[in-house]
Design a protein around this nucleic acid. Sequence first.
DNA 1: GTTGAGCTAGTCAAGTTTGACTACTTGGCC
DNA 2: GGCCAAGTAGTCAAACTTGACTAGCTCAAC
Lengths: 197, 197
Amino acid sequence: MSATKLLVLGIVHLSGGAHGYQVRSELQSWGAESWAKIKPGSIYHALKKAAADGLLTEHAEPGNSGPERVLYRATARGRDEMVELVRDGLRRTHDPDMLNASIAMLPMLTRTDAIAQVNERVARLEAELVEQAKWREHPNRDAPEHVRDQAELWAGHARTELEWAKSLSKRLSEGAYTMADDPGSWRTVPGHLKMHS
Amino acid sequence: MSATKLLVLGIVHLSGGAHGYQVRSELQSWGAESWAKIKPGSIYHALKKAAADGLLTEHAEPGNSGPERVLYRATARGRDEMVELVRDGLRRTHDPDMLNASIAMLPMLTRTDAIAQVNERVARLEAELVEQAKWREHPNRDAPEHVRDQAELWAGHARTELEWAKSLSKRLSEGAYTMADDPGSWRTVPGHLKMHS
DNA sequence: GTTGAGCTAGTCAAGTTTGACTACTTGGCC
DNA sequence: GGCCAAGTAGTCAAACTTGACTAGCTCAAC
């Protein structure tokens, strides 16, 4: 899943440099263990992988108090990649983890960009609902009855998401949240995450 | 994910013995690539793993026409484990893949058992909605505003699932589907899946 | 003054998933 | 009578995730 990648890159970027445990704590305080199903082990792996891919840089830090640790910082490529991941996650349906991660990192985008991506999502969801309605009139005879019945549940979820996406788009248009191009954003105030250390 | 395990065990069991490609085709015809995100590679792995765990037996078959292949059959332990997985998947919230797989294998359970598990799910979803409502009145101040806003989406999904689970319970009570203890079930008519070979 | 609980910071092996690849057969078309 | 596309059946390495484990520090209580 690239949701892990997105969240890890995002936290490092937002805090303007962080070590593994800091990323882990921040995600935990956001409740990410539950909605993104991220386990500590994956975070350290994702950090190393991102560093190997040139999206982050590694700086060894001597352990002044406590064990030694590695400081990660985002590179320009890392930031570009992350913005692209957020945009992707907003548009793509059928990937709840990526959606959740993208919402968490929403302020990485400019307001107009975010609105465009969310509207694209709305359009896709509407198209899928039409597709599903068709499928229900001409069901696949190979699938057992109860499997066909699941379609109701998915349609319900799709409708829920559609309403939510529409309301998000509206909130964004009305100026909710501090986006990348707003005063006081992470861009103008780097390291604005209050760390617990 | 144990959704793969459940589906693979289930298909082998339902068809009364199958080889890898057969399982793969059957799942494809059910549309499982999309809702369970199962890729061919995982199916072969799951079959081998289940065989190693004593849930399936392997019978080498000489390739009379086409490449040689391996026939898998469910063991008694395999059937017990699968029924338990279905029951688990029906009860557990926050695991859509397992729910989907469990629904697909719903007729493995007796009618009264299935109803009990679905009702348990209904109870859990209701409890979670209450919990979420509390959380919204006293939000976690560490999480950014847009992260807290996601809660709306989850609550919407939970409500959708709740309604759906209630209606499933009702349909089951009214005698919908052919369950394990009904005449004409997979139990009394083994191998009732029409294979495309 | 030391024991134990909890926080900080991470490693590691084992398990699982993925996507790309192999290889053989069948049937249709020219 | 040959060639290509599609179907059948599966392997494999690389990537990723998971859960259990290590290990030092701090602080409070006994």
